[in-house]
Amino acid sequence: MLREKIIGLLYILFGIILIVSPLFSAELLSICIGFSLVCLGLAEISAGILFMGEFDNSYSYLSIIIGILSLLFGIMFIFYLNALTFLVSLQFYIIAILMMAYGIVGVFYLDGKYKIYSVIILILGLLNALLAAFFASQPILIAILIGVALIIEGVFILVVDRSATLIEKYG
């Protein structure tokens, strides 16, 4: 129970950091997007491990795979700054695809309250894909979207943990 609270608070903290951190140059933008993908990847890997055995194991494995892909893309964006001009527009689509994949996996494999979170992430991924052309001219918005997704996931983990505690106490 304490582990879930810590994970939820870390998600919220990383989300707030992504929303309020200023981006001054193209290199810093690539590093911040890479950092946000690394955070998303670590969050997905930990979610896959955390829910191992609680739901269908396919959800956990797919969540871990999506997390590893996010982690790899994040490391690529942090260390390969020479390709930034080509990758700036692709970063938005890659992140949108990863968010939609995580949302779709959650919709098919999770149940009850967990589907709400997955639908929200799926909607944010679709919104990111639809507005990618606009985001290419305003790249700071992608970090804000990932920050919002992390905050939603953190709040969701805290709320689900609290509601599970109330059910155990009064159920």
Rank of each mutant, 00 (worst) to 15 (best):
I64Y: 07
I94S: 00
I45P: 01
F134W: 14
I157C: 01
G106V: 05
E54F: 09
L13W: 07
L150V: 04
G74E: 12
I142S: 00
I16R: 07
I140E: 14
I167K: 13
S36N: 06
I33K: 11
G41D: 08
A101W: 05
L131K: 14
I7N: 07
F156A: 03
N128Y: 00
A43R: 11
L28T: 11
K5F: 04
E4K: 10
I68N: 04
Y80Q: 14
G15P: 10
F73Q: 10
L90H: 09
D161A: 11
K169E: 15
L124W: 11
Q91G: 06
S137N: 08
L28S: 13
L37N: 11
I151S: 01
S58R: 14
F79V: 14
G53F: 03
G48E: 06
G147Q: 01
I120A: 15
G15Y: 08
I152C: 09
A83Q: 13
L130P: 02
L40E: 02
D56F: 09
V148A: 03
N57C: 06
I45W: 00
I16E: 04
G15E: 05
A129M: 14
F108W: 06
I95Y: 01
I123H: 09
K5D: 02
L131M: 14
I146E: 04
L141T: 08
I49Q: 05
I65C: 11
S30C: 02
G106K: 06
L50T: 04
F134S: 15
M52H: 11
L130I: 10
I65V: 14
K113A: 15
A129E: 08
Q138C: 01
